[in-house]
Nucleic acid binder design. Structure first.
Length: 230
DNA sequence: CGTATTTGACCTGCGC
DNA sequence: GCGCAGGTCAAATACG
């Protein structure tokens, strides 16, 4: 209900360094400029503004900035909040590029089964205190995959990125008057999640945080020749 | 009828 | 240990 009602601000690249920190204090922001597309490619994302037929932000939105951050909180949760800005894993030349957030540094990601267990009851939902997945909390906390986020100037919260998402939650965040929406890829085999929230600083800025990597192609191309091997 | 969204409750992690 | 905040689930509801 936002589209067309207001005068679209149009593409506006705001590389203001004011965004030293985003919604997550434990995240590092990288000004990816127009290079984020290549970075996304490493994650399986394909933002191609030049190709509206593909996935770009063709819904009146504009990719403002890109910022990535690592999140290997599996082993050092207490420290993962403070080591972001000085993470040694980040390439020194990442001035305009998102750090190498590939799952290679996160063994948990390699095993897709880690997020796709038969008993998906993560111990919530009011399940009986039988024997939830508490076993996981003993040695390891919630397995989180590498994440990266983007700041987009848009009037719509949910940006079209070529994939189909299903909203599974919404919460009000403390430092922002705007609620945060939680999306999950509709592909049952895909564990990619996405958080969408508006910046408390600039309501026109939509902060989209992706977590994980897609194991499939965009819905726009359901039957690409992926099995060209045969 | 099937799928997506909404929304309250519950769980987990972290700081004090 | 307690409280707060974030994150997730699942039933109910809405919509195509």
């Amino acid at each position: 209900m936002d589209e067309g009602d207001k005068s679209d601000p149009g593409p506006e690249f705001t590389s203001n360094s004011s965004w030293s920190l985003g919604p997550d204090p434990d995240s590092v922001y990288f000004f990816a400029n127009d290079r984020e597309s290549s970075i996304l490619g490493e994650f399986g994302w394909n933002f191609q503004p030049d190709d509206p037929n593909r996935a770009g932000l063709h819904d009146g939105s504009d990719l403002t900035e890109g910022f990535g951050f690592q999140d290997h909180e599996d082993s050092n949760k207490s420290s993962h909040r403070a080591l972001q800005s000085s993470d040694p894993a980040l390439p020194v030349g990442s001035e305009s590029k998102v750090g190498d957030l590939t799952a290679s540094s996160n063994p948990s990601v390699s095993s897709s089964s880690s997020e796709d267990p038969p008993e998906k009851s993560t111990g919530s939902g009011g399940k009986p205190p039988e024997i939830p997945n508490k076993v996981r909390k003993k040695g390891q906390k919630r397995i989180r995959q590498p994440r990266f986020a983007f700041m987009t100037k848009s009037e719509v919260d949910h940006l079209e990125d070529g994939y189909r998402w299903r909203k599974y939650g919404q919460k009000a965040v403390k430092n922002s008057p705007f609620p945060r929406s939680y999306y999950r890829c509709t592909n049952s085999r895909c564990t990619v999640k996405k958080r969408v929230e508006r910046s408390s600083e600039d309501p026109t800025i939509v902060i989209t945080t992706y977590e994980g990597q897609h194991c499939h192609h965009t819905v726009g191309f359901p039957r690409v020749s992926t099995d060209s091997s045969r």
